[in-house]
């Protein structure tokens, strides 16, 4: 099969994967697309929401439909780095230490309630996320490809949590909230029974190799000068504003480009349009930009940003 044919087939399968996901996670097409875009942009995803709105189901469904191996780690305050990375154990037979891989060595890791773990464990996870490799006892172990972390945190639970610092949050490409389903979809949910059981009957639409190929294709989506102008103005605006604690970092800017490329790719466009940037901007800035105390609670920051920058015309 030629590369071009591969690409066409992958794109078709991607569409099918999307459709399937929408049958499992009801009424959240936007979030599903954002999750996929995040994955295709080789970013990690933070889901900030209350329990029981389908975070785990979403992660599970993603892994299943994309054909990825997945692991789930429930983060607690006594979780140690070794618990996720793995430990070296002494093998009697060979008389040597042998590294036993932790749950991190998977393609899709669901890190539940990531803010419950101690900062030490958090930073071990976040380092692995960034480097896509793990060092233990002087040996470097590469993580599988693709590697995608879906972390969740519960914003309403403050007791006994260690809030992720800005520098760590910056490593998540996107932060999405699922929110409660609307009435019609909740009804369908109530009728439909257990969602996770549905997954058992669904075949994987993609494979790890196909996901990697798709990730590569996303990087080829065209970025015009006009669009980069627009994007830079947008980034600069976050840095100029007096009511923000911090502007977007260059890493965030790179992430924005990749996410916009992935969004354009999912929508079948050969080039990134301002609309693509605007679509991925809200989950991108949600966990990165914070208003100063005096200006808190003043409404949708992302929408405000978008409205303040004219597109090239």
């Amino acid at each position: 099969m030629s590369a071009a044919a591969d690409a066409t087939a992958d794109a078709a399968q991607l569409g099918r994967a999307l459709e399937t996901l929408e049958t499992v996670i009801l009424g959240k097409p936007e979030q599903i697309r954002l999750c996929l875009a995040c994955l295709l942009a080789r970013g990690h995803l933070l889901i900030e929401d209350v329990p029981g709105v389908g975070k785990t189901t979403l992660a599970h469904a993603l892994a299943h439909v994309l054909g990825l191996a997945w692991q789930r780690v429930q983060f607690t305050s006594d979780l140690l780095p070794a618990d996720i990375i793995g430990v070296s154990v002494f093998d009697r037979g060979s008389q040597r230490f042998h590294f036993r891989q932790g749950p991190l060595f998977t393609q899709l890791l669901l890190a539940d309630e990531v803010n419950r773990a101690s900062p030490r464990t958090q930073s071990a996870l976040l380092e692995a996320m960034e480097e896509r490799q793990v060092s233990a006892d002087g040996t470097t172990y590469a993580l599988p490809e693709p590697f995608f972390v879906v972390a969740t945190q519960n914003p309403h639970e403050q007791l006994g949590t260690f809030a992720l610092p800005e520098s760590q949050l910056d490593r998540f490409l996107m932060c999405v909230t699922l929110g409660y389903p609307d009435a019609a979809h909740e009804r369908a949910l109530l009728r439909g029974g257990e969602r996770r059981e549905l997954l058992a009957g669904i075949a994987a639409a993609l494979s790890p190799a196909a996901v990697v190929r798709l990730q590569r294709q996303v990087r080829t989506v065209h970025l015009s000068e006009a669009l980069l102008d627009y994007l830079q103005t947008l980034i600069a605006r976050t840095r100029e504003r007096a009511d923000l604690r911090l502007g977007l970092s260059p890493r965030a800017a790179q992430g924005l480009i990749r996410a916009a490329q992935a969004w354009a790719f999912i929508n079948g466009r050969p080039a990134v349009l301002p609309e693509d940037v605007q679509a991925v901007l809200p989950p991108l800035v949600a966990h990165r930009l914070q208003r100063r105390e005096a200006a808190q609670g003043l409404g949708d920051l992302a929408a405000e940003l978008i409205r303040s920058v004219p597109v090239p015309a």
């Binding site: 349009l273 301002p274 609309e275 605007q278 978008i306 409205r307 303040s308 920058v309 004219p310 597109v311 090239p312 015309a313």
Partner: peptide, 26 residues
């Protein structure tokens, strides 16, 4: 840009005018 602005100006007569932040598809 001039042609596009002309298009938007024409469309503004039959529909709401384009907001500065609206991309073409939007």
């Amino acid at each position: 840009g001039r042609a596009y602005r002309r298009l938007c100006a024409r469309l503004a007569r039959i529909a709401p005018a384009r907001a500065a932040h609206q991309g073409p598809l939007d």
